Amino acid sequence: MTLPRPPLKVALAESVNALPRGAGLAYEPKFDGHRMVIFRLGGEVLLQARSGRIVTAAFPDLAAAALQLPDGTVLDGEVVVWRDGRTDFAAVQKRAAATPGRAPALARALPASYAAFDLLAEAGQDLRPLAYEKRRARLVAVTGSLGPPLQPVPMTLDRAEAEGWYESLPAIGVEGLVIKRLDQTYRGGVRLWRKLRHTRTHDAAVVGFTGAPARPTALVVVLPDDDTPVVSSPMQPGLRGQAAGLLAGRVSGAGGVAVATGLGEVAYRAVEPGVTAEVELGTTRHTVTTVVRLRFPEELD
């Protein structure tokens, strides 16, 4: 197997409704941020989002921190921004959407943290064929002494401790757990991990809308752990009016194309980052994203 290089497909998790039981399971907190792979190869650092997009310029603070890693290292993990003792997904999205010129100032105002949860390569050796248990031990050995902003995610083999995390960590914005088998290899693009969330709703960053600015039809959102825009189902009339007021003055000159369930690719108007929507993900034949309510943005500048 060749050394992991971008664009790299990341391992995925399937949602479950109860905490799995059984021997040989590991439990990690589920951070709602932006998935990121860090490549420290050939004397340089590259940061890749889940979609395969290179986002190094948007996160100069993490790129600088990654220079501490030994050459030949590849990490998988989650980027979060902490504000007032909680993770703030809207702030992460603002960081991810930053232009190269704006990124350094945002890095100072909204410093990012990286929770590393897997080690895919070390010293130029591809570790994906190894069991998670072995990769985890080597991950801690490589990153454990670095400290913020780059550090290993907590992990426990104790189900009772995991249950305690599940009940207590929502207070700081951690909304669930990821469960992995100790003997599992790393398989990109495959849902072998499992994730348990407290609720069926998710905070999503609003990046655009379809329809008229005075009465948007649907919102275009980016979900936690992903950076691919998706179009919500048509909003209820009351939410359309709220969206018009909330997005007024935030419409940018840019546009884009996103996938709408049942329609394929549709064009949308882009908005400045900072607005968050609470959405529910329903699954019939395809995943349907429904806007439940809108959150008024806090000032992030």
Results as ranks from 00 to 15, higher is better:
R200D: 15
T201A: 11
H202F: 13
A204G: 12
A204S: 14
A205E: 10
V207G: 02
V207Y: 00
G208D: 04
T210Y: 04
A212F: 00
P216S: 08
T217L: 14
L219C: 10
V220K: 06
V221L: 14
V222T: 12
L223G: 12
L223E: 15
L223T: 14
D225G: 12
D226L: 14
D226H: 14
D226W: 06
D227N: 14
D227W: 06
T228N: 05
T228K: 13
P229R: 04
P229Q: 04
V230T: 15
V230G: 11
V231W: 05
V231C: 07
S232I: 04
S233A: 15
S233I: 06
P234R: 04
P234Y: 06
M235C: 12
M235T: 13
P237T: 08
P237V: 11
L239D: 07
R240C: 15
R240S: 14
G241W: 03
G241I: 00
Q242F: 01
A243Y: 05
A243D: 09
A244W: 06
A244E: 12
A244Q: 07
L247C: 11
L247P: 05
L247S: 07
A248G: 05
A248M: 06
V251M: 10
S252A: 11
G253W: 03
G253R: 13
A254V: 05
G255Q: 11
G255D: 07
G256M: 03
G256F: 01
A258L: 05
V259R: 10
V259M: 08
G262N: 08
L263F: 09
L263C: 03
G264V: 08
G264E: 04
E265S: 14
E265H: 13
A267Q: 12
Y268I: 07
R269A: 14
